[in-house]
């Protein structure tokens, strides 16, 4: 009895330590399959890596790999900035589209079930190998089935038109990318739509009722209630869309990094390229969190 008291903990506190047993697998996995390779990758990026029969050797080379990646590799900069640009344009487009689609799907209407089944189909299908193969398939060609490749022309025309209107360049770029990649953006929006829909349904109806009693219009209702309460979902979706692009089949940069590693330029250079990629992602995520943290509303 006295021994028990000497711990100075309540029963609940003591029980809480059982939590470590549950998270133990993750702690082990984090150390061995994340932190260790994470540190190794820092070391690799400043080393020359020579693989032997039963091990590998590392020779310190300083920042040479980064130099190679940025200034020697003929295509890296182009692919790298292309990918970053694509991400900066795609993520807002996905966000806007999926928010719009979630509002379309929310509420009661005829055929709601079917619409939802179709809208979430990309969650299942739009990944991996099939998307890649479709790109080169004859049956998807313009001449053959009137496919969406034709949107390239539409995009050029739209750009000329918007330039005439003297709109801000950023806005034009965003809109043109959206039009050119309509099908891509729709197919990448499956998961974000689900998250937004979950968010919309979690808004309690009494808030809207109060709004109606106060005599607010639908427009005001949207900006006063819906939009602020959806900000956590927006942050989640920004993060999800960025994470999703890491393993997307159309990520040219990732493919380039992979070919660099296994196709001659060396592991070190490839890891240095990954680090440059991660640094940009980290800056973007930090900005997103910094900008949104003060503007994110949580109920309760």
């Amino acid at each position: 009895m006295s021994k028990r008291r000497s711990f100075g903990m309540t029963l609940r506190q003591k029980r809480n330590y059982v939590g470590y047993v549950f998270v133990l697998p993750f702690i082990v996995g984090f150390l061995l399959f994340f932190l260790l390779p994470f540190i190794q990758s820092i070391v690799f990026s400043i080393s020359e890596l020579v693989i032997g029969r039963d091990g590998y050797e590392l020779n310190y080379v300083g920042l040479r790999n980064y130099y190679q990646a940025l200034f020697v590799s003929p295509q890296f900069r182009e692919v790298f900035f292309g990918q970053v640009r694509q991400m900066m344009l795609n993520v807002p487009a996905i966000l806007m589209f999926s928010f719009f689609a979630a509002i379309l799907l929310n509420g009661e209407f005829k055929g709601r079930w079917l619409a939802r089944v179709i809208f979430f189909l990309p969650v299942i299908m739009s990944a991996g190998i099939v998307l890649q193969l479709e790109k080169y398939d004859f049956m998807y060609d313009v001449g053959r089935a009137g496919g969406f490749s034709g949107t390239g022309i539409a995009g050029t025309n739209l750009k000329l038109f918007l330039n005439e209107l003297k709109l801000p360049v950023v806005f034009i770029e965003l809109l043109v990318t959206a039009v050119e990649n309509v099908s891509d953006i729709i197919r990448k929006s499956g998961m974000p739509i689900l998250v937004f829909l979950a968010g919309l349904q979690s808004i309690p109806s009494y808030l809207y009722e109060a709004c109606d009693i106060e005599g607010a219009t639908a427009w005001e209702r949207f900006w006063i209630i819906t939009f602020p309460l959806m900000t956590p979902s927006m942050v989640a979706n920004i993060i999800y869309s960025i994470v999703d692009s890491f393993t997307a089949g159309d990520n040219e940069l990732v493919r380039f990094i992979h070919t660099t590693a296994f196709g001659g330029m060396g592991y070190g250079v490839s890891v240095a390229m990954s680090w440059l990629y991660f640094m940009v992602i980290a800056v973007i995520l930090a900005l997103v969190v910094a900008v949104t943290s003060k503007r994110t509303y949580y109920l309760s």
Partner: peptide, 27 residues
């Protein structure tokens, strides 16, 4: 369970998510 370091571990879980898998794939 509310144990010391629980939030830190949750933070690490999210960290593993936002690090591109390419970064650690060679190691």
């Amino acid at each position: 369970f509310e144990f010391p370091g629980g939030n830190l571990i949750m933070g690490l879980v999210l960290f593993t998510l936002v690090v591109p898998p390419q970064l650690i794939n060679i190691p």
